[in-house]
Structure formats: C-alpha cells, structure tokens
C-alpha cells in the first residue's frame, strides 16, 4: 500500500511492534490498525462489491478477522498484504453468497451525483470541471465503470481492483492472491479486454 524510501527499515520495525501489540490484544493497537487501513480496505471492498451497505459490513468483518487471526500472522508478508488478502477473500465469499446478483450501484451513484452537485469534491473522472453537466458526465462514467467491474466474475474482478484501481504491483498482487504472476497477467488481460468492450459499447 504505497512504497516510500525507507533505508533504515523503520516502517518494518514499526509494523512489527504494532503486530506484537495486536497479539497482546492491546486495544489501542487495534484502533491504530483500523485508523491506518480503514480507507484502503474500504475502497477495495466498495469497488469489489459496489454497494455501500454491503461494503460497510464486509469491511468491518475484515478487521474482525484481522484481530481474530492475528496470532496466526507470521509476518512473512506486509501487514497491508495480509489485510488485502483477508479483504479480497471476504469479498469473494460475499459475492458467492450473494449469488452474483446485480448490485445496486445505480442508486448509490445517484446519491453520489447529488453530493457532488451539492459541492463535494469531484472525482478524477471529471477532469474539466466547468459545470454541473461535466460533473454528471464524470459520475455517469463512474457508474458505467462500476457496472463494468460488477460484470466480471470474482477472480477477474479482484485483479482489476488490485491492479487498476488500487495500483498495486504484480509482486504485491501475487502475494495477496497466491497466484503465479503469469496467471495474474493473463486473467487481468482478459478482464481488461472485457471492461474495454463493455465501456466502448456503453460509453461511446
């Protein structure tokens, strides 16, 4: 989740201390982990699922699992990688449970449109902000993209979200998914081509 120069390995030391405190069931360490990773977990889960209501429940479950399983965390990957793995697995399980029903992304994005029109920060999909029409255009594109992602099966969707939404490296993705790099790349390519076809048809 974002690499920055850290020649002394301070991040790793801090992370190990945090993990030790978690294993000692220290509530403040727990709160720190939630504070540090809540937005990253939320974005991953929301983009995977497309519904805020489901996302809130799943994202909370991710942290519950983290604290239930912290004793089993051996530290052979970064804490963030482990968190992403838990989040991805929860999403995939929920998607199976929901039976790949069509998620209610439309209403959610209509709400988002309203918020943005009322002056909230626009998204990167509204690059030339010169009026409400452009904001709506960006939001329609966001809705289309979310729809396109929702059409992918869970194995393809997770790769698109990790790579193209979260901007993770292939190395991180193989660590999260446990898949070989070649498998990640070929699946991701198919997923991207499907997104391209859907958006070219719908988005014009």
């Amino acid at each position: 989740m974002g690499a920055s120069p850290d020649p002394l390995g301070m991040t790793m030391i801090r992370e190990r201390l945090l993990i030790r405190r978690l294993q000692q069931r220290e509530e403040r360490a727990f709160q720190e982990v939630v504070r540090l990773y809540q937005h990253k977990v939320w974005n991953l889960v929301f983009r995977m699922i497309g519904s805020r209501e489901e996302a809130e429940d799943i994202a909370q479950e991710v942290f519950v699992t983290v604290f239930k399983s912290i004793d089993g965390f051996r530290g052979d990957s970064k804490l963030s990688t482990w968190l992403y793995r838990i989040a991805a697995n929860h999403c995939k399980n929920r998607m199976k449970y929901l039976g790949r029903r069509s998620y209610k992304t439309t209403g959610e994005l209509d709400e988002a449109a309203e918020r943005e029109l009322q002056g909230a920060q626009p998204s990167a999909l509204t690059p030339h902000l010169d009026g409400p029409e452009k904001v709506l255009e960006g939001l329609q594109m966001e809705k289309l993209v979310q729809e396109a992602i929702a059409l992918l099966d869970e194995d393809h969707r997770v790769l698109v979200v990790l790579r193209d939404v979260e901007d993770l490296s292939y190395q991180e993705i193989t660590a999260i998914t446990g898949l070989a790099e070649g498998t990640v790349k070929s699946r991701l390519h198919r997923a991207r081509m499907a997104l391209k076809d859907y958006l070219a048809k719908r988005g014009g």
């Binding site: 937005h39 983009r47 805020r52 993209v145 396109a148 193209d164 391209k196 958006l199």
Partner: peptide
C-alpha cells in the same frame, strides 16, 4: 483499451464513512 483503463484508474478513492472505526 486506454480509455477504459484510464476510467478505471480515475475512479475516485472512496473513504470509509464516518464512525466506521
């Protein structure tokens, strides 16, 4: 292809709702 991936990468980063933690 470029346009589609540009749009996916341009999705706004959603943040957890207040009270989530």
């Amino acid at each position: 292809f470029e346009k589609a991936l540009g749009a996916v990468g341009g999705l706004p980063h959603e943040i957890a709702p207040p009270g989530f933690a």
